[in-house]
Amino acid sequence: MAGYTDRELEQKSAGMRLDLLRYIKMAGAGHTGGDLSCIDILNVLYNDVLNVSPETIGSGDRDRYIQSKGHSVEALYVVLAERGFFPERELETLSRYKSHFVGHPTRKVRGVEFNTGALGHGLAISGGIALAGKKDKKSYRVFTLLGDGELAEGSNWEAAMFASHNKLDNLVAILDHNTLQLTDKYSSICNPSPIDEKFSAFGWSVVNVDGHSIPELRRVLNDVPRETGKPTFIIADTIKGKGVSFMENVLKWHHGVPDDAQYQAAVKELEERIGELSA
């Protein structure tokens, strides 16, 4: 791992926010709010936690990342590009005819492990990968990112039982806990609370983290498994639209695309943030 300072990773996060807005603006489509809420998590995973790189993506010993909340794909693309899995300029084809860069992850994009986007799939897939690691006595870990609205899919709870039953302590699920889904706050749709108690009851080791604090994320994501024989569930408290003040906690930015004035305002705010971090 490159050994970045917290400040350097914070700079990367701000730059990635700028990038993902640029490509969403270019494409005229994207899941902006969720991208902004999970980008810090992905930045820390790929730049501080995961034992995977463009050179080792073909290795059977690599750590795996499965993005169950596939709609936040622009965040994943930007992080993979920044990490060198493919040239960043390829992202200019996002959502274009015949582009590999579609609105949910596919394995046509180098670095992507599974085709996801239908919700409630990532946890079982990750469970299978973790089980293979145990059977083959490999030391890799599997990280998967879930959305909180996604928890309504019953397949998550099947897979949660499977993971603890099989003592998959090489499996880490991270919840992008921004509390908003497409239609409304999750608490008014079909409330999954208390999420921590539920996963504890399902046999997981549960921990909370500030999903926008780089040092906190580094500490918690690197400290796995927390308990031998138990899969880890990390509830990352996040803000949908984080980093662009007028997008924060505003429902319409779930898949909103900024108009020109909004885009300029967002760029200005993010550039100021980058300036602060460079000072």
Binding site: G60, E113, F114, G120, H121, L123, A124, I125, S126, G127, G128, I129, A130, L131, A132, G133, K135, D136, G154, S155, E158, A159, M161, F162
Partner: peptide, 26 residues
């Protein structure tokens, strides 16, 4: 016994876990 994996009555997990295993060469 090491080559049989039981998931219980959970077909979605059966197939999802199978895909994960297959991605690792099983």
């Amino acid at each position: 016994p090491d080559q049989l994996v039981e998931v219980g009555i959970a077909e979605q997990t059966l197939v999802g876990v199978s895909a994960g295993l297959a991605s690792c060469g099983k």
